[in-house]
Design a protein around this nucleic acid. Structure first.
Length: 760
DNA sequence: TATTCGCAAGTTTTT
DNA sequence: CTTGCGAATA
């Protein structure tokens, strides 16, 4: 059990199993739980590991959690060593950015090519690379560099003054702590005698420094990772950490796990071929005893909307047929923005889904407002929290009043809350405003913490004194009604937290948890829903059926990663990670037209697709002709029914393209030369196409003859438009319509569409 | 001072 | 298309 260990584990190789068994074994050897720490990247991974360990070794008290949590905990204990108090606040990205803006304002710097968020990114980079404000030298030629060099120290100083840290500080402070305090380092090295690190390929320099410092006297560091799954380079992760492990720990034992227990041979082969295109890579052979499985399917759709509809229809069909359950499916995408179309499509077939985005709850305005009150109660020095709540709900304390408070605070080097206490002494402040501020202080004091309270009680007190709930409820907008519900949910959350943390609870711990939850964490395996998430969030998970959408150039690889070859390699690894999540079926898709930030653009298939073993794929549509189909469809006189890729899933025939046509997105037949595989596979007669698209059957109430060019028509979904052209006869009689506010034209089969003449 | 409206900007991935 | 920020108005 002793000595350094490196586990190079391919995807699906049972790494978690190995790690948990190792921990269980350590305990069996008599190693005390308190000496073992398992560090993961996400809370989700930690939970998973904890659950598995619980099965092997019930009642274990081995600490498992994320790096950030681990550091937050250490920092509570040794805050004074880095100039903080133990009740420090953790600022999330939004708070940090606000503080940075404050600092920028204070310095009155000219931001010509540097936006605050760019500056924030630069500071974040510096912190992750353990470059302090004093060490930061303006990067030559970078317009941001000089700004950063000036702001960084001020920003940092403001953080300390506010008794706060940002995410990166959690790591950076602890790393510095360990570097500068030899005795403490030795003590902690002893205390955390056995350290396990998951996803070691994703650790950055700060994280490396931490585990390295804790593994000097007791070099029992066990790291698991896979260089091929390194996808956080942009966040400062260095693959070097894993590649140089053997140099850091010469006595290391290296274990390779190359056998895959997850995916079919087809999927694994495709993924393996893809990743082989990376130049910066350690060779690795993946193999499996699993069955061959179905070929990886690559589908080309006319538009992103068709893509979403196609996937939704396929899932709905298979679920209705009883072949699978919603939870068997996952849909991955490169950017969050791509989830919208999918949501819409899944809703329209009434398919339950969940998006891994737990973070959003704590990001909501109303929730952040309440949390800001809590933060301020916990840490009166937190200026950002003060600024957030001073006039929320409105108390007639506006910009100018706050400006005066700020000046006073800066002058006396005191927190804003303290400045507010002295409002009466600030001459420039209007009498009435000073009174309002005094009332706020009275309010604050009335909410003060009283020792061992339940979080729920504190929140209720905040509600009671601030009348925040009533303020939100007073509005009659639907949005605000939802807000009230969210506030109730926060209360529920707090209650659950109180119940789950009888011993280690408290407001601080609650706030820490609220700051450190992530997207994936909220994702629930229990519920029977289709899962949607980004490719990054998918790491570590697995699903029977995986769809990866928008495998297109400039999206995957992302356009902003195409400058450097090594960034493109990271994008390739990202796709690799996504593909290897699939156990049984893998679907990749591409659209010829992709709507992004409001407008449609021609899209081309990702170069990565051409790196897959094409003869093994099931290709629906044509790759590489991305842009050629664009824009000319309206010239096709008799629009051929698009061979909808999911049509083959239905047992009845032919009528379906009409139904699909009905939703009016222009579709083109894929170009010839395509290998069209059409398994004659009949699925359930239980689903009608109408149910599939969540709509009633055709109701041709108007004679196709009653339409003429130039006529104004109405569509229940698209609204009012004008007929640009008519073509075809009989059931093929179609109208091309320009809807108000839409740039693109839509075509309908009159016999089947709900299109009606409109009154002018 | 508060609210509303309009415009502009920026949009990868996350603890 | 969204979000955030700033200006104009009540």
């Amino acid at each position: 059990m002793a000595g350094p260990l490196l586990i190079l584990a391919g995807p699906g190789s049972g790494k978690t199993r190995v790690v948990t068994h190792r921990v269980a074994h350590m305990r069996a050897q008599g190693i005390a739980d308190e000496r073992i720490v398992a560090l993961t990247f996400t809370n989700k991974a930690a939970d998973e590991m904890r659950a598995r360990l619980e099965r092997l070794a019930p009642g274990s008290r081995v600490w498992m959690g994320t790096f950030h949590r681990f550091c937050a905990r250490l920092l509570r204990q040794y805050a004074s060593l880095v100039g903080l108090r133990e009740n420090y606040s953790i600022y999330d990205a939004e708070d940090s950015l606000k503080l940075l803006r404050e600092a920028l304002d204070e310095l009155d710097l000219e931001l010509i090519h540097a936006t605050p968020s760019r500056v924030a990114a630069a500071i974040s980079w510096a912190k992750n690379n353990l470059i302090g404000p004093e060490d930061y030298e303006a990067a030559v030629g970078s317009p941001i560099g000089s700004v950063v060099a000036k702001v960084y120290p001020v920003y940092e100083q403001r953080l300390v003054a506010a008794n706060a840290v940002d995410f990166d500080d959690l790591l950076a402070h602890v790393a510095r702590l360990l570097r500068d305090n030899a005795e403490l380092r030795a003590m902690l090295d002893e205390r955390f005698e056995y350290i396990l690190v998951d996803e070691y390929q994703d650790t950055n320099l700060a994280q490396y420094a931490i585990v390295r410092a804790l593994s000097i006297d007791h070099p029992n560091l066990a790291a698991t990772g896979d260089p091929d799954q390194s996808i956080y380079g942009w966040r400062g992760a260095t693959i070097r950490n894993i590649l140089e492990f053997e140099q850091d720990f010469p006595s290391v034992t290296v274990v390779r796990l190359e056998k895959n227990y997850r995916s079919t041979k087809c999927i694994l082969r495709a993924a393996d071929r893809l990743i082989a295109h990376n130049a910066e890579r350690k060779e690795k052979t993946l193999y499996t005893d699993n069955p061959e499985g179905r070929p990886v399917r690559v589908v080309v759709y006319p538009t992103g909307r068709d893509e979403a509809d196609g996937i939704a229809a396929r899932i709905a069909n298979e679920v209705a047929a009883g072949l699978r359950r919603p939870r068997d499916y996952a849909i991955f995408y490169r950017t969050n923005a791509l989830s919208r179309a999918l949501e819409r499509a899944l809703k329209s077939v009434r398919m339950p889904y969940q998006i891994a985005r737990g973070l959003e709850f704590y990001q909501r305005k109303e929730i952040k407002d309440i949390l800001a009150y809590l933060h301020l109660l916990c840490n009166p020095a937190s200026d950002i929290a003060f600024l957030r709540v001073i006039n929320t709900p409105p108390r007639r304390i506006g910009k100018t009043a706050v400006a005066h408070l700020k000046r006073h605070a800066a002058h006396h080097r005191i927190p804003l809350l303290s400045a507010a206490r002295e409002a009466g002494l600030i001459e420039s402040l209007a009498k009435r405003t000073a009174v309002e501020i005094a009332r706020f202080i009275a309010l604050y004091d009335a909410m003060r913490l009283a020792g061992d309270e339940k979080v729920e009680e504190v929140i209720e007190r905040v509600f009671h004194h601030t009348k925040y709930r009533e303020w939100v409820a007073a509005s009659d907008s639907e949005e605000d009604q939802q807000r009230v519900e969210n506030l109730d949910e926060l209360l529920t959350d707090a209650r659950e937290f109180d119940e789950a943390h009888v011993e280690d609870g408290g407001l601080e711990a609650f706030l820490e948890q609220a700051s450190l939850v992530s997207d994936v964490d909220d994702w629930n395996t229990e519920t029977d829903r289709v899962t949607m998430m980004t490719l990054h969030a998918a790491k570590g998970l697995e699903f029977p059926v995986v769809f990866i959408v928008a495998v297109e150039d400039n999206l995957l690889p992302h356009e902003r990663s195409q400058e450097h070859p090594h960034q493109v390699e990271e994008e390739r690894r990202l796709l690799f990670v996504g593909m290897t999540r699939a156990k049984e079926e893998l679907h990749l898709s591409v659209a010829q037209l992709r709507t992004l930030r409001g407008n449609q653009n021609p899209a081309a298939a990702s170069p990565f697709l051409f790196e897959l073993p094409t003869d093994e794929l099931e290709l629906v549509g044509t790759l590489g002709a991305g842009a050629t189909c664009v824009g000319d469809w309206s010239e096709a006189d008799d629009l051929p029914a698009y061979d909808y890729d999911d049509v083959d899933m239905l047992d009845t025939e032919n009528d379906f393209d009409e139904y699909f046509q009905d939703d009016a997105t222009p579709r083109r037949k894929p170009r010839s030369g395509t290998r069209q595989t059409r398994p004659a596979r009949a699925i359930s007669p239980l689903v009608t196409a109408a149910e599939l698209v969540g709509r009633q059957g055709p109701t041709p109430a108007c004679s196709p003859d009653s339409f003429h060019p130039g006529m104004v028509v109405a569509h229940p979904q698209y609204g009012v438009g004008k007929i640009v052209a008519l073509s075809g006869t009989g059931v093929k009689r179609s109208a091309t319509v320009q809807f108000a506010g839409e740039r693109t034209l839509r075509r309908f089969r009159l016999a089947f569409s709900p299109l009606r003449p409109a009154r002018e």
